[in-house]
Design a protein around this nucleic acid. Structure first.
Lengths: 345, 345
DNA sequence: AAAAGCACTCCCCTTGCCAGAGTGCTAATG
DNA sequence: CATTAGCACTCTGGCAAGGGGAGTGCTTTT
């Protein structure tokens, strides 16, 4: 298994192959490459290099006597050596500018983001606000609705609002007491810590007759203080773009199905983008996590305000996506997020 | 233009053609039909009837010497004469039972509904809660978040909760006053009426220096009291099912794109299902409203609690959908909605 | 080491052909 | 008089054969 050090010539040809394949979608052959190559190498020489690259695992042939197709390894290498100093196209920039006007809260921002990303990448744009347990509590608010119904609103420091209607029979006075207790004691705590501590206190007071704790226990048990928002918090847009690119109908259907299962997307973003690093992350080979996503990649970044991770945004597209452009756009919006939400604090 | 009265024989043959076409998707010819027909009519006789039905606009031929395909007119007739007394399949019923467990609020119900409908119809399920101006106000709640940010929560009698973050600089004390004023004066009013009356009062007091009205005016202008929830209130699920049915890629893409534009769906449901009638409504020929929806139909019903329309639910699918089954399912869930939300009041 | 030449492979598009299903019309039949 | 049988005709769709095109690996030449 020869592991040939990739020299200058190999690098150049590999890059050219990847770019040509991204542009055309056809396996690329030595002749085509020799024509478009600035320094005129003959097809035969290129063939030699190609053979080496195939051995090294960067190229594949759909069948004998077809051109070469980049492997995931090749894409990784290609992305690696991108300079990353490209500028955003004017068109994309103006789309972005127009879209984020007068945004105040995280949810809205995420919704627009998924839309904008799908527009400028011509692929699937996804964005979500982290509703995880590490958010800090701002305050809670309970209100009696009809008989036996209670509205619970939880607001986090990051501006996320989660409301749910519970089936409970508690008087407004008791609700006010409970809210007050929680707000006074736990403002600024993480949701996680608050829930744990509350559980502890409930347990402790269980034996005694404590009206307040009884209310809180009921609220707690009905999930009034959970911030997970099952499917709402993630926005997926541009699925229709897949139809144009994906030829295999079977695969297309699997893809759409996966995109509809928001939970899967949440896990995906969580797994790869829950990081404090600012950089855009490119994940090649999504099929390890989701089989239906074979030949698809994720280009995303965490959405941060200052040092705090508040969500993530990404483009999901085929391996032959325009990496440079997409990475630039993702990075741009991630920075915009920080800027917009910082200034409004 | 002979308008032949549709007699018993015509009715039977037309029904058979529609059903065969729904089952197979192929143009149906006289020979096939004669075989499957219980009273053995010869192909020739059937051809005669078919010719009449073609003249009357119920059938079409893709080309000479192909079988016949039902026109929209035929589907309308077919649906018309369905008895509608079919029972739900056991499988569907248990899917439904499992899905609506422990539901308390309208939003959740709608979300599940779209999911369930897509599952049992193998098509696109949609559902929305009406966020229209005719909802009655339950109460509002304002809370100061960070600097210059205010959380506004509006709750309607029907249990809909709408929250938004505004960029405003008002003290919590003033917010409390404003909320109290609105709650005391307008509980039970329709959103529409409340907004109109508030606008009037703001106008009236404009000249005088009234701190309270100033706050309310600011809140009003920032949209704190609007209940339209741009894209959240409508749930669309099962788009991936279209891939299996729709052959034309171009069309498929248009369809998916339309389904992504939630606003279009809201208008569609609003146009056809904002009715107090209980009955399931079948709309054949959606392309009049949405060109991309050619050859698609809508089978839906209003979601009502008592006499009040609180939303709508529907299945969107191709003309060759299983009408009977889908209608039964839609009707079942619509009744379930009434039942579940009534008992919890 | 790079290029040229050559024989070979494989895909895929085009063409031609034929079976099958369907139709409308006309003539026969109960 | 309604129904059926027969017939000539039409259109589609699948299948097979054939050939051009693009590409490869290997060998030889520069």
């Amino acid at each position: 298994m020869p592991s040939p050090s990739i020299g200058e010539r190999e690098r150049e040809i590999l890059t050219a192959i990847v770019e040509t394949f991204i542009a055309t979608g056809e396996p690329v052959g030595s002749r085509t490459l020799s024509r478009s190559n600035r320094e005129g190498l003959s097809p035969a020489s290129i063939r030699n290099v190609m053979a080496d690259l195939s051995d090294a695992g960067y190229l594949e042939q759909p069948h004998t006597s077809a051109g070469r197709v980049p492997t995931p390894e090749a894409y990784r290498y290609y992305v690696e050596q991108l300079t990353g100093k490209a500028r955003l196209s004017h068109e994309s920039e103006s789309i972005i500018q127009d879209s984020f006007h007068g945004i105040t809260d995280v949810q809205e921002f995420m919704e627009r983001t998924s839309h904008v990303l799908s527009l400028i990448s011509h692929n699937v744009g996804v964005a979500m606000a982290t509703t995880g347990p590490r958010n800090a509590l701002e305050h809670v608010y309970f209100s009696r609705l009809g008989d036996q119904k209670v509205l619970a609103v939880v607001v986090t420091k990051s501006g996320l609002v989660r409301d749910r209607v519970l089936r409970l029979d508690i008087s407004q006075a008791d609700l006010d007491l409970a809210a007050r207790y929680i707000n006074d004691n736990f403002r600024g705590w993480t949701m996680e810590a608050m829930r744990a501590e509350l559980a502890r206190r409930i347990e402790q007071e269980r034996s005694e007759y404590d009206r307040l704790m009884k209310s809180i226990e009921q609220l707690y048990n009905q999930g009034a203080l959970a911030t997970e928002q099952p499917s709402q918090a993630v926005y997926v847009e541009g699925a229709s773009n897949l139809v144009a690119n994906e030829q295999d109908r079977q695969h297309l259907q699997e893809l759409l199905k996966t995109l509809e299962e928001k939970q899967k997307i949440v896990e995906l973003l969580g797994a790869y983008l829950d990081t404090k690093q600012e950089a855009v992350r490119v994940v090649i080979g999504l099929d390890e996590a989701l089989p239906s996503m074979r030949n698809f990649v994720l280009i995303g970044a965490p959405a941060r305000v200052g040092d705090e991770v508040m969500g993530s945004l990404a483009v999901i597209g085929p391996t032959r996506i325009d990496y440079q452009h997409t990475m630039t756009a993702v990075s741009y919006i991630a920075r915009l997020f920080d800027k917009i939400l910082n200034e409004s604090e």
